[in-house]
Amino acid sequence: MNTTPILKAEDLYFSYDNENSHSLNGFSLEILRGKKVAFMGANGSGKSTFFLCCNGIHRPSRGTLYYCGEPYDYSRKGLLKLRSKVGIIFQDPDNQLFSASVYQEISFGILNLGVSVEEARQEVEQVIEKLEITPFRHKPTHALSGGQKKQVSIADILVMHPDIIILDEPAAALDPKHTVMVNKIVNQLTKDGITVLMSTHDVNYALEWADEIVLLHKGQVLMHGSPLDVFTDKEALAQTNLEQPAVLQLFESLCKKGILDSSLPLPRNLQTLESYIENM
């Protein structure tokens, strides 16, 4: 098994204001291929900045990023190669969708990879079908709902077949129905073996979905580990303005009251907790 991290960050520093303050402040991290990693932390903790560094939009002032063991090459050619492998879906789809038609929008990325028009057409059609965009494929982008815009922005990246997909708060400003739909798409991505990095404030979703959680605080990795390790560390959660997931709070409370046996493995979702109660 290949244990080389697909992405590695080594002591990164990045500043938006001429090194007066740092959005990334000695940030180090390793991510293995095929993992689902949730990035959590207070606003301004450096999540989005790190994501932009991963895609080569920002270049850290110090430190090195590695993709598959190779340090980032910031030449034009190197960046094009990197961006074909590391795709980013921005938080606000209106910052991503530049074209007036859904079809044109989705075709942009794949054509930039230099594939033939015929191949690009096939890929665009496939991704339209896969993400269930067909009902609104003929609509102009400005007439789409928030959820539909998000679907199109995911399709924009998926069509390029990246190895890593970065989602910057994909459920931000979405209603519950569209949040479920986006989560379904994200689950599909991970089933396809794509490494998914996602920033989110939803601790319940992160506990159930993620293989690893990265807690960020003031531009540094405060904690990196399994969801259960991270979400049971109340001190770290408090530092990053996060609360324990509801299912863990309820489990702890039921254990304290002697209703459940505290030796049971920690539940990662409500279904597991429900089965514990049923088997009492």
């Binding site: 895609n55 530049f98 942009f108 054509l111």
Partner: peptide, 24 residues
């Protein structure tokens, strides 16, 4: 601000100075 963010998003999709898109 929007134009800056848009340029970043286009760069992230390997934009090389030409807007290449398919037409239906």
């Amino acid at each position: 601000a929007k134009s800056g963010a848009l340029y970043d998003s286009m760069e992230a999709r390997c934009y090389d100075g030409r807007l290449k898109v398919l037409d239906e």
